[in-house]
Amino acid sequence: MTHIFEPSTLEERRRYYRDEWDINDLPDFIRKDLSKREFGFDHLGRGPNDRYRVFKTPDMLKRFMRYRSPFAAYCSVAFYNKPRKRGEWLKSELVFDVDAKDVPVRSCGCDSVCEICLDEARQIVAGLIDTLKQDLGLKNIHVIYSGRGYHIRILDESAMGLDSEGRSQVLKYVAGAEPPKNKYFMEDESGQKPYELEHFSIPLGYPAVFTKRIKYAILHMNGTEKMEEVNPKLMKDVLKYREMVQKDEWGLFKNKIGPIRYRNLVEGISKLNMGLVDAKVSIDLKRILRMPTSLHSKVSMRCMEVKNIETFDPLKEAVPKFVNERKGY
């Protein structure tokens, strides 16, 4: 297994694009309107500095990939009338990038990427998709395994015109990056004290999303997470009583923690949740993202569309043949 995440050589890249890669595997959502996207390439492993490329047909892209065997290939989330100049922007996919190595709560504690954190990233993605469908009603959602994590790429026309701020609001909603309010007022009761209602007592809307995200975080913490609002004593107590959260005994858990410290915990985790997804990617309307079917040469993994996120196993499905044929594997 140790050979899996090692970088690929130029020879391996050539073999990949010559023997394994097939332009017909390119997902339909990329092939359709291919000529309206910007493509970018990294040839030397120093970042995508070959930008503003346009391919009028899949065949032209195929020839380029076979001939150049790039270190990395990217295409824009944006569609343009003049993609070569990134001119006349039309719309952009709504995108969420979950990188396993950047997930803020990881039970493995590894310093890069391992099977455990890749699987945790997969679980997070499944949760995000659930909210994107159930709450936000979005359709045409595609999941791409990027090599070290996942991209959720949404081509629902109703969301593709959103500006950066709109996207940032969607991000906060799905990631649970804002503590929901816990005081509510009844109509026609002006002057009355507000009703205290914690997120876990509300089984719908954003509070319910938040409950799912905070539950995930609490259950996956390993105690080394840094949150300004959470001191070591509070962290210790959270780990001590988190079994109650597992059983959805939130009231008991809050009692054990104490109301003020509970609020601190909620504040702290909501900030951590902001890191579940790379926010810069989501709010950037002109971002280029790793092209599905291309090779992630830093880790020798295939970037590919995931048909079923519940059952997807990157170590079975995204490992190129040349990795299995490496000496000593």
Binding site: Q134, D135, L136, G137, L138, S158, Q169, V170, K172, Y173, E178, P180, L204, G205, Y206
Partner: peptide, 11 residues
């Protein structure tokens, strides 16, 4: 704020 509204199936 999106988080202030109750959303269901996009509504």
């Amino acid at each position: 704020n999106l988080t202030d509204m109750i959303l269901d199936q996009g509504d």
